[in-house]
Design a protein around this nucleic acid. Structure first.
Lengths: 352, 352
DNA sequence: AGTCATTGTTGAAACGTTTCAACAATGACA
DNA sequence: TGTCATTGTTGAAACGTTTCAACAATGACT
């Protein structure tokens, strides 16, 4: 492997100092440098196919133009789509992304943060998981710029970009109420994460007029639940005196697995059970009756996260907290007698 | 922000040279260093919460312990799952992954490679797209270690980890033949990529006994095809003298969109049309009749890719070419009269 | 007492860049 | 002719690490 050319190689060939080469190639001292020298240097640089060593540059500048991205689980479509958007936006700002997936485990999260800090990332974009508040606070104590995405801590003064989860649940539940449902069940995750609490709060709040004890219609599954756990959840909600006529799923994974179960049991949707699920996935279109979904503005979330991080890296020490508005994509699973298995979307909610 | 401690900070506090600190912390010169000095240095390092600056280390060693991952499209489940596996394996080897998605565009691919090389990655794992052979050859001329995944160039002497695509198609098509189908259609992508050519070849080869002109049952859609394109494809295969009774889809995206179309037209599967699709996605389980799928050994592919890359980085200049065997997960879409909508899998094929 | 190997430690260079401060050369001015 | 500002260029230090080569101190051996 012919070694990559350095400033010195160019300087030697041109018979000038590395300083001069650096100035020329960075467009500094424009008014000082003799044009013909500049031209010659540029010519040689081009001929040698020179490109600066970012490692050396980073060391000198204490700046790596790299951001670390920690997602909860890269194989979840939400995360991978977010990763794509963030990579795209970061690239536009001249930044490279290094990433890792913490798989909802605080220790893995901790490890990723350490690796990223050792690599001196300029900032972090983080989808935190349960139990990582201490690590986040550590970042803060170290003055490392970061932005939380999707999930955040209400009592923590930090930048974040998330959904208005309360409003999302409220809207979804109200939609079911509007279509005549009174006994509505919710399957959610058993987690302390605030965004999930908010989803629960929105559900309860919407239901409070018609249901005096909405808590009894909520089933919480642990992260990493099994098919049997899901079956149990359905039993709780359906095999009782007043079975629910509609079901609200608070994550795409829950929606996915609930629909698998519904499918295996040949439960008719929406005749026997109406369904609203969280998060957009085009795959849900494949279900016999397309599923009404609460849609997060992913592009907006990703772009804003990068924008805010860039400002923070640039020295802005204030923080920005955004709760974006969801959209409701109404499909056959929540309305009519299954007579509308169309793919056209009726969008409810406001765009930002 | 209190600056991160350096070797020098520790050395000063301990009243020794940075050399000594470096030796202690890296466990070099074990037999030389006075134990109590070593202990004191370690104690101070711990107290200051020291961790070495990887940037400086990289500069000195001309080694970054970073690998670049270029995927065709990170939002495709195949890519994101692969990214997860690769990140995981790389981490185990002490490497960090920087990534980018080339979105099937050669220019974006080129740009990513440049960025990664400027950052002096130690090696690359690449899912190439159409038209990037020159860039790959450039890597080779520069002696940059790399491994191609999923897709590769038959005439290029380079390491790769891919499927035995011929065998995969052959197996999938034969499966349909075994279940009595004689008129089988295939929808594929219009691309020069060798792995797709192989899928076509396997299809034709399997069909050659019963169909003298299998080419007429192949429809090629361009990358980024529309819903209308898909509809047209179906028209070609179904609206003719001898419509096909079975359909073979050569990518997960094609499978996805074909099923959407099938669903919208209420075509009965498998009664009116049997279906076999490429690539595993749990989402396909949601379809009224679960879909028979050709499964790639993703974990194996990712692990092998990292392993081979590590060897290559370690100086092994030979190359390894792997064509792994697929599995066929037989589901309701290709057998019986739709009487087997179960979720149990019947796996055909051999594990490696 | 002088030579020598061993033990414990350190100075300095190197990786490739950026940038401050200094310098030589030029011409303008008094 | 000496002073000074301007123009064009460069030496050297710095970022934080690793590592070679050298060194002082110790004790052992002749």
């Amino acid at each position: 492997m012919e070694k990559k050319p350095s400033l010195r190689s160019i300087a030697q060939q041109a018979g000038v100092s590395t300083t001069l080469v650096s100035y020329v190639l960075n467009g500094k001292m424009q008014n000082r440098i003799k044009p013909e020298v500049a031209a010659r240097v540029r010519e040689i640089a081009k001929r040698l196919n020179y490109s600066p060593n970012q490692i050396a540059r980073s060391l000198k500048a204490s700046k790596t133009f790299t951001i670390g991205l920690v997602v909860a689980d890269i194989s979840n479509p939400f995360s991978s789509e977010m990763a794509r958007i963030i990579e795209d936006q970061a690239d536009k700002a001249g930044y490279t992304v290094i990433y890792g997936s913490c798989d909802e485990r605080a220790e893995k999260f901790q490890k990723l943060i350490e690796v990223f800090l050792d690599r001196r990332v300029d900032g972090l974009i983080v989808i935190p998981c349960d139990g990582v508040l201490p690590q986040i606070q550590y970042l803060q104590s170290r003055d490392i710029p970061f932005v939380l995405v999707d999930r955040y801590f209400p009592d923590l003064a930090s930048s974040y970009v998330a959904l208005d989860n309360y409003q999302a649940s409220f809207m979804g539940t109200n939609h079911l109420l509007d279509h005549g449902h009174r006994r509505i069940g919710m399957i959610t995750l058993d987690t302390q994460l605030y965004h999930m609490q908010e989803r629960t709060r929105g559900f309860i709040s919407a239901l409070s007029d018609v249901d005096s004890s909405p808590e009894q219609s909520i089933v919480r599954l642990r992260e990493g639940f099994s098919a049997q756990d899901m079956a149990d959840a359905f039993d709780i909600l359906l095999k009782r005196d007043l079975p629910v006529s509609a079901l609200y799923l608070t994550t795409n994974k829950l929606g996915m697995h609930a629909l698998k179960y519904i499918h295996s049991r040949k439960i008719q949707v929406p005749q026997e059970l109406a369904v609203v699920s969280f998060d957009e996935t085009e795959f849900l279109d494949l279900f016999a009756t397309p599923v009404t979904q609460i849609i997060q503005p992913l592009q907006e979330m990703g772009s804003q996260a990068v924008r805010i991080l860039m400002e923070s890296i640039g020295g802005n020490s204030s923080f920005t907290q955004l709760n974006l508005q969801p959209l409701l994509a109404v499909r056959g699973s929540s309305i009519g007698g299954g007579k509308r298995p169309d793919f056209e979307r009726e969008l409810v909610g406001r765009t930002l």
